[in-house]
Amino acid sequence: MVRICVIEDEPNIIEAMRYLFESEGWDVVVVSDGAKAVAAVHEIRPSLIVLDYMLPNQSGLAVARELRENKETEGLPILMLSAKGQHKDKEQAQLAGINLFMTKPFANSELLDNVKQLLAADDT
């Protein structure tokens, strides 16, 4: 079963994403604190991570870097969501090992398409 880990701190965005992903029949686990995200991912073992750029206590970039440094999580697909859409932000995300970068606000269909695309790529 597909399990999506949503690392995001905005409750109403979380609720919309949870509904959207659960409608696809996927399992959704939410983490809202950047500092707890890495440990949670090790425990949850998700198929994919949707990661917010700005999180309380530890940034999304730092979370991604830590995940990439660990053998168990280095290959996990990560989709980053950010209100920061400048070239340098995308570049930093790429350097941190993010597979796909999406700027907020986004269309649900676009988010779903990207998640499916990453899951399919991870399957092959």
């Binding site: 905005e10 109403n12 965005i13 609720e15 919309a16 994403m17 959207l20 969501l81 209100a83 907020k104 606000p105 986004f106 269309a107 649900n108």
Partner: peptide
């Protein structure tokens, strides 16, 4: 932008 994202998605 976070507010707008929540409104748009919902």
């Amino acid at each position: 932008l976070s507010n707008i994202t929540a409104i748009r998605s919902t």
